[in-house]
Design a protein around this nucleic acid. Structure first.
Lengths: 232, 232
DNA sequence: CGATGCAGTGTTGTATACAAGCGGTGCATG
DNA sequence: CATGCACCGCTTGTATACAACACTGCATCG
């Protein structure tokens, strides 16, 4: 977040900036913003703001009411659960295909990366676990050579991130993640689709429960904060 | 396609127009178009064309290379198969949830609509089967009260339609569609998730094979046409 | 003869000006 | 006092002008 002497910003940058403002709770669900405000704020014209908002709209971050304004979309925990359900279905499919066609070499590479023995070292080196985690799940679909499936998982992750705004880093669940990922990979290496599918399902279910509680507490905290210092 | 005396067109209309040009093979995969061309063609400014293209890009119809132009996206049959696989996974999920929570009333309504006895009558009345078919599949997810799942199915259908450009109407498979849909609904009414999932899987697999051959022949025909009257 | 620099042209990216539509406010009227 | 209606401001939708950049082709130099 260094503030370089305001060079001309591009649409992609505006998109990121707004997205950050939403996910970091700087803009709260239900808030209304206008294209003009954002344009002034970022010191660009309305055009790139508009394009960024369009993109954010299809991704579900905001909804723009014609001639009226742009609203930060609300979300609910039911929606989150639904997305995790969908993830289970899709990732079981990915794992199944991976058992059939993911090359041993790739599987072994992934196993190295997720060897539980590496956990402490990774943590010490400040690896961003949320990024690594996402790469794992997408990687299964890509390893199975299902690019469209991978795309779809990416877009679901985008939407989940809207809801689950916290990163997975600072929790005590990280070692468990290594173990669970490693287990899935072992089953894939053994070409045991049944076990692999079960393992990935259990893993995602656990992530879901974890994400749910985490989100609820964070949201409650934020709401309390706002209620306390009602400076808007 | 009536050509009203060119009233001012809106972004949504431009979107539809371009989309039609693509799906009807008026623009062929690999073709390059510029925003300016399209703007002139439709007699609007570049702005709405640009927005329409952005939308078409996220939906996979075109890909715009920065500062270079906009290209009609190519596709391949492997991609099609992958989407059908994904559909199987998602629709099995939808059916499973439908068995749990879709109200009897909705199921019976759908059964009425898909009663094989109705087939001839529907055909005589010129019902658009492709629309009705899509409504069935989406309807299962909606009936199970999984709006996000329904959304996802919609977007997959969009992408499948890019590839499978022909409508399902003029074929000899329509009665079979009625029977297969009816069977799925029967299982849902009986709350037999196992059988329902199997039935929907078989149904989609059959659609897939059908779509594949249909697309291949249509594409071949079109290519032959172009090769014959090479008027570009 | 080949490679490389360089300018020209065409395309998208961005800024700005103008049009159109919706909502709210305030006034007039019953 | 309630209600309808007109006007005004604010917001998005569209048009146009300008900027920046990538590719192409040619000329020039090794």
């Amino acid at each position: 977040m260094t503030k370089l002497p305001s060079k001309r910003k591009t649409t992609a940058e505006i998109y990121q900036l707004i997205r950050n403002k939403i996910t970091s709770f700087e803009m709260f669900p239900g808030d209304r913003v206008t294209e003009h405000e954002l344009a002034d704020l970022f010191e660009v014209s309305r055009t790139p703001v508009r394009e960024a908002l369009k993109r954010l709209e299809v991704e579900g971050f905001v909804s723009v009411r014609p001639k009226h304004g742009c609203f930060i979309r609300d979300f609910d925990i039911v929606e989150l659960a639904e997305y995790y359900d969908i993830r289970i279905a899709l990732e079981q499919l990915a794992v199944e295909h991976a058992c059939e066609s993911m090359p041993d070499k790739l599987v072994k590479q992934a196993m190295e990366a997720w060897d539980p023995a590496r956990h402490d070292d990774d943590m010490a080196r400040g690896i961003d676990l949320s990024v690594k985690d996402e790469a794992f799940h997408i990687g299964l679909a890509e390893g199975a050579q299902k690019p469209m499936l991978a795309d779809m998982l990416r877009s679901i992750n985008n939407r989940i991130r809207i809801i689950r705004r916290l990163d997975i880093n600072a929790d005590n669940r990280s070692l468990r993640t290594y173990r669970e990922h490693f287990e899935v990979l072992q089953h894939i290496l053994n070409r045991d689709a049944g076990k692999a599918k079960l393992a990935i399902k259990r893993h995602i279910l656990r992530s879901r429960d974890f994400a749910k509680t985490l989100t609820l507490t964070a949201l409650a905290q934020k709401k309390a904060q706002i209620r306390a210092g009602n400076t808007r």
